[in-house]
């Protein structure tokens, strides 16, 4: 066992031989967008992301379905599964089975198995002093999903955020594989600061983030100002807020947004300073166009995240 339960990482990794390890992960959730086909795509992209975050390549997947047969037409389920399958095809993943149950609330996701070389496994551990932090997708999907629920999001924004969530982290992972990476995770339910906290705790280092460099969807800032932050953002802040320091010059809305839970968020990559610019250049050229270097690993203050 290379990565197990002892440290919460994105997926489990089990070594089969000297040059092959198995990565396993499972993820499912309730609908976040109205269109069943896109929901299927997003749920699949989200589940596949954990494999990419571990430095691996997804190979096979199984569908997990909870469906309210008495309230919904089966055609909806067919559209969800079609969306998921299209995303798996795009990722070069074979669907090998699945399981469905009747459920009061619709749920869909995947159990995914991938391969990785045992020496190339990327975990949340391993940041080094002076490392740069790179984020490959903009933040704000949680706020915008709340605005969609509230009926306050415009069609253009919905369109934009759906595409963003359905975008695989595969291209970003392919670029990342060309560089020596110290640590990696994907930004999901705990928000940027929640996931970054997991990377920082226990290292003896701290992190400084430059707020102006963090990509955030402009509509998310607008909607957050109207009080459309999801409850999850506050829970994340309650859990990890003590680790975060920010000066009075920063709008308190910003730290809240950095705790916004993301669906199918980007990769958060820790890389040596000497390689950071080339990594960023590669990412921007290969479809992860909104990637940014957002901060760096510092000696002091220890195990804190400072927003500047």
């Amino acid at each position: 066992m290379i990565v197990g339960l002892e440290r919460a990482d994105d997926a489990g990794v089990y070594k089969i031989s000297g040059d092959l390890a198995l990565i396993q992960t499972v993820d499912f959730f309730t609908p976040i967008v109205d269109d069943p086909y896109w929901f299927g795509q997003i749920a699949a992209a989200n589940a596949l992301s954990d494999i990419y975050a571990m430095g691996g390549e997804p190979k096979t997947a199984m569908n997990l379905v909870g469906f309210p047969l008495k309230q919904m037409d089966l055609s909806i389920l067919r559209r969800i599964l079609a969306g998921g399958l299209d995303k798996m095809k795009e990722a070069g993943v074979a669907l090998v089975g699945g399981h469905s149950i009747e459920d009061g609330e619709l749920k869909y996701g995947l159990s995914v198995t991938g391969f990785v070389h045992p020496k190339k496994v990327l975990t949340k551990r391993g940041m080094k002093l002076g490392d740069r932090l790179v984020l490959t997708k903009p933040l704000g999907t949680g706020v915008i999903n709340t605005a969609i629920k509230a009926g306050l999001a415009s069609t253009d924004v919905i369109d934009k955020v759906i595409r963003l969530m359905a975008t695989l982290n595969r291209d970003a992972a392919t670029v990342m594989a060309r560089f020596p990476i110290h640590a990696c995770t994907d930004v999901t339910g705990f928000g940027l600061l929640g996931h970054l906290a997991e990377m920082v705790v226990g290292t003896g280092y701290g992190v400084v983030l430059r707020v102006a460099d963090i990509p955030i969807l402009p509509e998310a800032i607008e909607y957050a100002g109207y009080g459309l932050l999801p409850a999850g953002a506050f829970k994340n802040r309650e859990f990890r807020g003590a680790l975060v320091e920010f000066s009075t010059g920063i709008d308190p809305l910003i730290p809240d947004l950095l705790f916004d839970p993301q669906t199918s968020g980007g990769l958060l990559i820790c890389i040596g300073e000497e390689n950071a610019d080339r990594l960023l250049d590669g990412l921007v050229k290969k479809n992860a166009t909104e990637s940014k270097i957002i901060g760096e690993v510092v000696a002091e203050p220890k195990e804190k995240i400072v927003l500047k």
Binding site: A224, G227, L229, A231, F234, L253
Partner: peptide, 15 residues
């Protein structure tokens, strides 16, 4: 009944 809702309502009213 939650601090989260309180923050959100506060922000909405201020906006």
């Amino acid at each position: 009944d939650t601090a989260a809702s309180q923050q959100n309502v506060k922000r909405f009213l201020e906006s």
